[in-house]
Write a protein that binds this DNA or RNA. Structure first.
Length: 499
RNA sequence: GUCCCCAUAGUCUAACGGAUAGGACACUGGGUUUUCAUCCCAGCGAUGGGGGUUCGACUCCCCCUGGGGGCACCA
């Protein structure tokens, strides 16, 4: 790796559906790297042992591949600075933590969860750690650790003064050290937190430009401190604005309000090049002002300094327009035919669907109306058909939401798993299965009768199913913040875990 | 609450300190098309407010307001 070669990375956490925000970050990193003939690295940040899943990791890799954002080094293809999965680098973090402990730049903290809770009650929820363990002698901390007492490791942040940081888009930013917490860098399970892992890995992997979301700006002082402690050259930091919801709140893009899964857009019939193009125009435009551009054109023309900082709203209406332009302008009837086939109109898909419809066909033409919902994005339905026996609309709405939460946690979206889930849900709500499933037929197919629900759901896929259920909830009046809180409580009471 | 970031139409954005603030989506109206869509034309619509600096401010500075983000043994 030459001294001047640009090396950037995207570092998703495999804790859920592949998020369009990840694709957004990946795109700008990719384009910046390719512009200068540099390298684009994919690193999996799976240090959250509870929430990380292999399924999610695979989905993220697959969705980035679909978009055409191919990485030069990554967990699947390896590279000279591997491993590229943080869960496989624990020894590296352990050694580096040891180094900080010895140098007095970090300390073990033995405070229990209970004491921290008590401390937060005493000094307010956002005051940060009170640094009780900071002055403990290393010998004592070593002794207690050797004795098997559980601990975390915290970094020692300066108590006063000002941290000067530089952001490529914003220039110099100042932050008082007093406003920075003694952040945990190594958890009691031995895994690092983001702060340690990202600094160590970025250095070891030769990352010299960190392009990431604005949500990280406030953490830069911690990262700079770690670079300093290790005696390393920090990278150039460039914080991109956050994609926003398309409503009056303009909060950061969230699945509560919009489909955020890349898989949803794929399944809903958006073209990868159009989605990528659309993400590219969030905060940036070609020098000639053209809104339609290819990945190659973006790579050839991207200047990070030109990115505008206002948080761009992810407006699906404009994405649809752009997607339509691609279909009209870039495809011949033949290539569009290929595209449709690759998307869903292929033999493999038909084979899945045919067993469900064959018993219900009197003529071949019945095929069209019976299967239309399989090839649709949203599906129209009569709101008055959304009813569940013995339940008020409010109760139904809550049941639908809790079902969505259950579906989000379902790793295996197969008919048999869905069957088991729905039976358990019907039981939990004290309903017959047929009573429970009735509104799902309406929400998912637009009709009161359809092909078998669970098999059909498997074919539809998790993303479309959840989106249509969300639409049904909206049709029933939607959920207020207060209702959501109550539902979460009810959910915990019913299922013993948080949604 | 506190710290940090941000601020051109409903939305995405353009504008060396010097045009009548430009383009696109959406919306409205009209034209072409057997319908619809496409396509073409037109319209609607913005520099959040107040102070400075300057001959001149969307642009630079300050205050206010508004919005967002951070403040976890999540990333």
């Amino acid at each position: 790796m030459s001294e001047s070669e640009v090396r950037v990375r995207v570092a998703p956490s495999p804790t859920g559906d592949p998020h369009v925000g990840t694709a957004y970050q990946a795109l700008f990193n990719y384009a910046f790297a390719k512009r200068g003939g540099g390298k684009f690295i994919l690193r999996i940040e799976d240090t959250d042992r509870v929430r990380s899943t292999k399924t999610s990791e695979e989905a993220i890799l697959e969705s980035l591949r679909w978009l055409g954002l191919h990485w030069d080094e990554g967990p699947d293809i390896g590279g000279p600075h591997g491993p590229y999965r943080q869960s496989e680098r624990t020894e590296i973090y352990r050694e580096h933590t040891e180094q900080l402990l010895k140098a007095g730049d970090a300390y073990r903290c033995f405070c229990t969860k209970e004491r921290l809770d008590e401390m937060r009650v005493r000094q307010g929820p956002n005051a940060g750690y009170d640094r009780r363990c900071r002055s403990m002698a290393l010998s004592e901390s070593q002794r207690r650790a050797d004795a098997g007492e559980p601990f975390v490791v915290r970094m020692k942040v300066p108590l006063e003064g000002v941290c000067l940081m530089r952001d490529l888009l914003r220039g110099e930013i100042q932050k008082d050290w007093a406003s920075v917490d003694d952040q945990i860098i190594l958890k009691s399970d031995g895994y690092p937190t983001y702060h340690l892992a990202n600094v160590v890995d970025d250095h070891l992997m030769g990352i010299n430009h960190v392009i990431r979301g604005e949500e990280w700006i406030n953490s830069v002082p911690k990262h700079l401190k770690l670079y300093e402690d290790f005696g390393w050259q920090p990278p150039v930091f460039c914080h991109l604005p956050l994609l926003r919801n398309n409503d009056k709140t303009k909060s950061k893009l969230s699945k509560r309000k919009n489909p955020t899964s890349i898989n949803y857009y794929r399944r809903a019939g958006f073209l990868p090049e159009a989605l990528l193009n659309f993400l590219g125009m969030m905060g940036w435009l070609m020098p000639n002002g053209e809104e339609k551009f290819t990945l190659e054109e973006m790579c050839a023309n991207l200047e990070l300094e030109k990115i505008s900082l206002g948080g761009p709203v992810f407006d699906v209406a404009k994405l649809r327009w752009l997607n339509g332009r691609y279909i009209r302008e870039d495809y011949t009837p033949d290539t569009l035919c290929d595209q449709l086939e690759a998307w869903a109109l292929n033999r493999e898909k038909m084979r899945q669907i045919i067993p469900l419809v064959q018993p219900r066909l009197q003529t071949l033409t019945d095929w069209s109306y019976l299967t239309a919902a399989f090839f649709a994005d949203e599906v129209p339905f009569e709101p008055q058909d959304l009813v569940m026996k013995g339940q008020t609309p409010e109760q139904l709405l809550g049941i639908l939401q809790m079902t969505i939460w259950k579906l989000e946690q379902l790793r295996d979206f197969s008919a048999s798993a869905l069957d088991a889930l729905f039976r358990s849900l019907a039981e939990a709500f004290d309903l017959k299965l047929r009573e429970f499933t009735a509104p799902f037929f309406v929400a998912l197919s637009g009709r009161r009768a359809w092909t078998p629900l669970f098999d059909s759901m498997e074919i539809l896929g998790s993303d479309i199913v959840r989106m249509r259920l969300k639409l049904a909830i909206d049709a029933l009046g939607g959920i207020s913040g207060k209702q959501r809180k109550n539902l979460e409580k009810q959910y915990v009471a019913l299922f013993g875990r948080r949604p």
